[in-house]
Design a protein around this nucleic acid. Structure first.
Lengths: 109, 109
DNA sequence: ATGCGGTGCAACCGATGGTTGCGCATGGCG
DNA sequence: CGCCATGCGCAACCATCGGTTGCACCGCAT
């Protein structure tokens, strides 16, 4: 169950999450413009954009000597759904545990 | 925003997620029993239980020569809430983008 | 043509997930 | 009581990854 390990490891990195935030807020950007708004170097940002590209969360369009990245909205929406489904599964298990605990307590005078 | 980086990095690891799954399903377990149901060694599981313990998602209770781990349900519930809030933020941004795109399209004959 | 801004590639460093190997204690059993 | 085996922790080691620095390349403008 859950072969979305790539997705999690992609989105599990804090820098990549902030990268996605920036891309969503600004509607795209290049490695250098993004690195100016982050506490890491351009090369680090480029690597992160690479892994986000590999898992399909962003898409690069070369334009002149620049290389503009944009969020693949459909993929990100799908990703959010996957993540929240894991959370939902945990919540369901927690709820079951809670109900069992209550049942035990009810059966004790 | 989002100082929950520890939480994400804790839950971002696939082995740790499966660990939480097993602990929730079985209602607790030791490093060795858990390692038998995972494709990694007991030591690896012990390390993971260590980081999960450090962020408070699980709690260890020594019993005899064993060391039983259980999930801290309240903490896990809190964690799930944090994760889903990030997803909600992304969804909100995606929705805004979608509305803007629709507005632009409407204004084009 | 020359220079500058933006990329990409390569080497290197520290942290971390994973392994193996060992030593130690504790509990069951002859 | 003594022994053995089972469960644990510690240490060394390896691969991968996030991050940095340095350099070479390419496209555009003066």
């Amino acid at each position: 169950m859950t072969v979305d390990d790539d997705l999690w490891s992609a989105v599990g990195d804090p820098t990549r999450r902030r990268l996605l935030d920036l891309l969503l807020a600004d509607g795209g950007g290049t490695a250098t413009t993004l690195s100016e708004r982050l506490p890491v170097t351009r090369q680090a940002v480029a690597k992160h954009l690479g892994v986000l590209d590999r898992v399909g969360l962003v898409h690069a369009t070369p334009s002149g000597r620049e290389r503009r990245y944009e969020v693949d909205e459909a993929q990100l929406a799908r990703a959010v759904a996957q993540l929240s489904s894991v959370g939902a599964a945990w919540n369901a298990r927690l709820l079951r545990i809670k109900r069992i605990a209550e049942a035990i307590q009810r059966s004790q005078p």
